[in-house]
């Protein structure tokens, strides 16, 4: 491999952009969090006082809890769906695979803002398709104002999140399955293994790497998603769908509390960086 200092010239443009618009703001946010702010002007250095405020901020803990629920739900549902679908598709002919994978991925191409609007209608208590469908099969009693009730809002939104994510899981798992040696499956078939046995004893363990990758991806997305909540519920009703990003947005743009918004940003950064550090450690292990 060539050793050369002109490598820095190759790095310079992307590094400059990255440091100026991502690196610098991260350092600033850290700095901001140690000051008292008044109308966008830094006042006294107050040490960790903003961090102490976190302890008594109920909305922060509720938001964090919602992010945690979102992480678990995303790990459970879209990943599992993607794995099962990919395992089924692995044994179908190439044209079927190509078309179905494309169809499953279509929701991911739709901007979350638009996804939120579409699903907002499906969940609408007056004309929404969901209540209409439930009534049609005699379960009208289960219907409700899905996004406007505290007990169903977060779960209903998560269904939308999963809708945009499971197709991505299908594609990642499919690529990995297609790189597995088919002889392994043939050998299992000769031994008379059922589809389920092959799935459990071959596919799932062999796709461990992809599962870790998707798990990391899902967890990070679950910590940083914003658009979907903002266009549908803005964190409501009450604080039923409040997450860290909406809490930051409101604290900064609506309340104008720069120092505390920065503190929340630091917490969010520490969480995502810890998650990814942990996942990388796992990925390194054979």
């Amino acid at each position: 491999m060539l050793t050369t200092r002109s490598a820095y010239l190759f790095l310079a443009p992307s590094l400059a952009l990255y440091l100026l618009f991502v690196g610098l703001p991260i350092l600033q946010v850290f700095g901001f969090s140690f000051f008292d702010w008044d109308n966008g002007i830094a006042g006294d250095f107050i040490g960790l006082a903003n961090y102490q405020r976190l302890l008594g901020d109920g909305v922060f803990w509720v938001a964090l809890w919602h992010n945690a629920i979102w992480v678990v739900l995303t790990l459970a549902f879209p990943l599992l769906a993607g794995l099962v679908i990919a395992a089924i598709l692995a044994e179908r002919n190439a044209n079927v695979v190509r078309w179905l994978a494309a169809i499953y991925f279509i929701p991911r191409t739709i901007p979350l803002v638009v996804a939120g609007i579409i699903w907002g209608w499906i969940y609408n208590p007056i004309f929404g398709l969901l209540n209409f469908g439930l009534e049609a099969i005699g379960l009208g009693g289960l219907g409700g104002a899905w996004l406007a009730q505290e007990d169903t809002a977060l779960l209903s939104l998560n269904v939308v999140g999963a809708w945009t994510f499971f197709g991505f899981c299908v594609i990642i798992y499919l690529a990995a399955i297609q790189s597995i040696d088919p002889a392994l499956y043939e050998a299992a078939s000769i031994d008379g293994a059922s589809w389920w046995r092959k799935f459990r004893d071959l596919t799932v363990p062999l796709l461990r790497g992809s599962t870790l990758f998707l798990g990391l991806y899902a967890a990070i997305e679950a910590m940083r998603f914003f658009d979907l909540v903002w266009v549908t519920t803005q964190g409501g009703p009450g604080y039923a769908t409040e997450v860290l990003t909406t809490h930051i947005y409101k604290t900064f743009f609506l309340v104008g509390d720069f120092g505390y918004a920065a503190t929340l940003s630091v917490v969010l950064l520490i969480i995502v960086l810890s998650i990814s550090a942990g996942a990388f450690a796992l990925l390194r292990k054979p």
């Binding site: 990255y18 618009f21 991502v22 690196g23 610098l24 703001p25 991260i26 600033q28 946010v29 901001f32 990070i220 910590m223 940083r224 914003f226 860290l244 990003t245 930051i248 947005y249 900064f252 720069f258 918004a261 920065a262 940003s265 630091v266 969010l268 950064l269 995502v272 960086l273 998650i275 990814s276």
Partner: peptide, 13 residues
């Protein structure tokens, strides 16, 4: 490290 940085966390600065 930048792979996981959420846009909302830098927006303040």
């Amino acid at each position: 490290a930048g792979l996981v940085v959420p846009a909302p966390s830098v927006i303040v600065a």
